[in-house]
Design a protein around this nucleic acid. Structure first.
Lengths: 198, 198
DNA sequence: TGTACATCAGTGAACGCGCGTTCACTGATGTAC
DNA sequence: TGTACATCAGTGAACGCGCGTTCACTGATGTAC
């Protein structure tokens, strides 16, 4: 072992983190192996000591992006009851801040429409991340709700749609209006609106 | 004039149609000028007699895709009152058929997440199409609704999100469930659910 | 304890390929005389 | 009416560039003796 123990793991983690940002900022096909390696402070040739090929990097990057996103939202909702957690989640997700941070935001919003063109392994990674997100949302919904998974999927669709559309809009004010409107309507759909009692 | 009158226009229209399909199937960056020309029965070199460059093609292709989509849904809702038109629109949009026909479907669903990376002109074309779609939906909503534009934007977000997520899902049954669930919830949000009176 | 050797993460040149763009040329047809 | 010329949509070879991948090499460090 030439380098200190775990040196290779650390390098791999650095490359992966850069890739997880790049895949959201530029899309799976827009990620350039050389750029990712440079971002991690290395030259392109060393890439293949860590990953079999670009596809393997994309798969790992998507998993990493979902993990990052999960940790971010877990921190945000820590210690809150289900309804308060859900409200905090919606406020953070359907927000101007999220609109503006594509590289660090939720991979669902950043990648969804490019996914059908991706190879099987990439699609599988995204599919798993998406399903676990919906399941997490479902757990926050009232137990009295008859079809929690169904409602969770519907809410996920609107949240991801809202952020994606807001990013596609040229006018910042209009985009903010759309986000605010969707945010309130989503909360109203779950009895979490400001106008209604908790 | 060598060729018959309007020959060049016809060729341009053929190229544009092929590009409008390709841009939805492969994304703006995935469109290959040579492939589009081949699809139109021509060789790649002739492209520059019709478009200044690839970016100009993408802009025109997005406009064409929105037009196609508009005509399709106009035919579908022709002669119907606002509520029936809206219901027909939702049923057609949030459907398995739409999920399966990316190249001919709505450009919002097909392109949304790739848009932020595109050049200004491309973004402007998409932005215009998106806004006109939301305006069209708003006109179908009950006049009693306080914020028709806001509700329209929220519904557009959920519809586009639902179709996009369904396309990203590997399991067809799960995808169909998501579409059916979103469809009913969207209609319920407008008093158009099967369970409720028209 | 000191020296020769093995290991292997990382380097950087090179290769092949696809793609956008350019450009000299073609050839069918309309126009001028 | 017939012939020479102009026009221009479309052809196909060529170029440059970026990118994924390969590969011979480096050099710092651990191990064997």
């Amino acid at each position: 072992v030439r380098y200190s123990d775990g040196h290779k793991q650390e390098t791999r983690a650095k490359v992966l983190k850069a890739a997880a940002h790049a895949v959201r900022a530029k899309g799976p096909d827009g990620v350039a192996v050389g750029e990712v390696m440079a971002e991690a402070g290395l030259t392109h040739g060393g890439f293949y000591a860590h990953f079999a090929n670009k596809e393997a990097l994309i798969v790992a990057a998507i998993e990493e992006a979902f993990d990052e996103s999960r940790r971010r939202f877990a921190a945000l909702t820590e210690g809150l009851g289900p309804q308060a957690a859900m409200a905090a989640f919606v406020d953070a997700y359907v927000s101007t801040a999220h609109r503006q941070s594509r590289a660090r935001g939720c991979p669902v919003t950043a990648l969804a429409s490019e996914l059908p063109r991706q190879p099987e392994a990439v699609r599988a990674a995204f599919d798993a991340g998406l399903r676990s997100m919906i399941a997490r949302i479902a757990r926050w919904l009232p137990e009295t709700e008859v079809d929690r998974e169904g409602l969770a999927a519907s809410l996920m669709a609107e949240m991801a749609g809202a952020v994606t559309l807001s990013r596609a809009m040229a006018d910042d004010d209009l985009a903010d209006q759309l986000l605010a409107g969707c945010r309130e309507r989503i909360k109203a759909r779950m009895g979490l609106s400001k106008e209604q009692p908790q």
